[in-house]
Design a protein around this nucleic acid. Structure first.
Length: 301
DNA sequence: TGACAGGGGGTGT
DNA sequence: ACACCCCCTGTC
């Protein structure tokens, strides 16, 4: 399928820090994005918007390539997508790692990890799929949505459907993409967005709290999903999504046993500051890795 | 090897 | 608190 494609040569991603295979996997396949897949040769193939790219590591240096016909647009789009402009380095240094030993440990464990800057509408769609689902399953839904309802880009690879395109799909047909009860939320959201042109773009431009309030008015969007959309799809680093992993990690590493999600979110923003969402990503990566290690070595995390 | 629970990046009532 | 859908994963 993807082998019909003529690829450009591999080239370094300028501005990217060196990465370990683990951190690269955490960055593009760790729950921020759902359309990166490992290929037989160990490289990654990914799709966002109407872009297709390959990523690979050579001696910890990040390399990229693109289908030759798309190469010109993919280059700049990829830099933006990966957030390698340096702004996140400042944000990262501004985190309270000097006084927070656990945070320092997390930052050190995943050097180069960052927040992706994905297309806003697409991020909303992906996180509407995410409720009580694991990454593998979310990827499956998103892939079906793309293959069945999104326009083909190249070589059998499809982009995700736009909200306008989704509005034209019946709820049963959405459900057939393994969406379960999420199909109704996505269908209703699509109808709302179709009836309110410009609503999404306007939401993206609002300040964090106003944007979050608007997102939460959509069916199927609560605080957690809204924060994910604003963090991973609009670069709002102050968004601090609280999911079961963060609840676990805040209980265990910060002594917040029994705290409710809203309380944890409040603590997170107060403790980690304006880039709380970036801190969240490191804590999240750490907790997931601890769980993986525990599973393979049967040692309590 | 195949069937069978159990539970899963939440949201809405 | 519990239903909402239903696929993955770990077990027997």
């Amino acid at each position: 399928m993807a082998d019909k494609i003529t690829w450009s040569d591999w080239a370094p991603v300028s501005g990217s820090p060196s990465l370990t295979p683990t951190t690269l996997a955490e960055l593009i396949d760790g729950g921020q994005a759902f359309r990166w897949n490992r290929q037989a040769d160990g490289s990654w193939l990914g799709v966002w918007g109407h872009h297709i790219a390959g990523l690979a590591l050579r001696h910890e240096q990040l390399q990229w390539r693109a289908p030759v016909s798309l190469q010109k647009q993919v280059g700049p789009a990829l830099s933006r997508y990966l957030g390698v402009d340096g702004s996140q380095d400042l944000a990262r240094d501004g985190l309270p790692w000097r006084s927070d030993l656990h945070l320092a440990q997390c930052l050190q464990a995943f050097p180069g990890l960052r927040i992706l800057q994905q297309p806003f509408g697409e991020t909303l769609l992906c996180f509407l799929c995410s409720a009580t689902k694991q990454i593998v399953q979310i990827k499956q839904m998103v892939e079906l949505l793309a293959q069945r309802h999104g326009r083909e880009i190249l070589g059998g690879i499809h982009r995700l459907p736009t909200w306008t395109e989704i509005a034209a799909v019946s709820e049963p047909n959405l459900r057939a993409c393994l969406l379960g009860f999420r199909a109704r939320y996505i269908h209703q959201t699509a109808l709302f967005l179709a009836a309110h042109p410009g609503w999404l773009e306007e939401t993206e431009s609002l300040r964090y709290s106003a944007a979050k309030e608007r997102l939460c008015s959509l069916p199927g969007v609560g605080e957690k999903v809204a924060d994910c959309v604003l963090l991973f799809g609009a670069g709002r680093l102050e968004a601090f999504p609280v999911d079961v992993w963060i609840i676990k990690t805040m209980a265990r590493r910060y002594g917040l046993d029994g705290w409710k999600p809203a309380q944890i979110a409040h603590f997170g923003r107060a403790h980690f500051g304006p880039a709380a969402g970036l801190a969240q990503q490191f804590l999240f990566a750490w907790e997931r890795q601890a769980a993986r290690l525990a599973r393979t070595s049967s040692i309590a995390p």
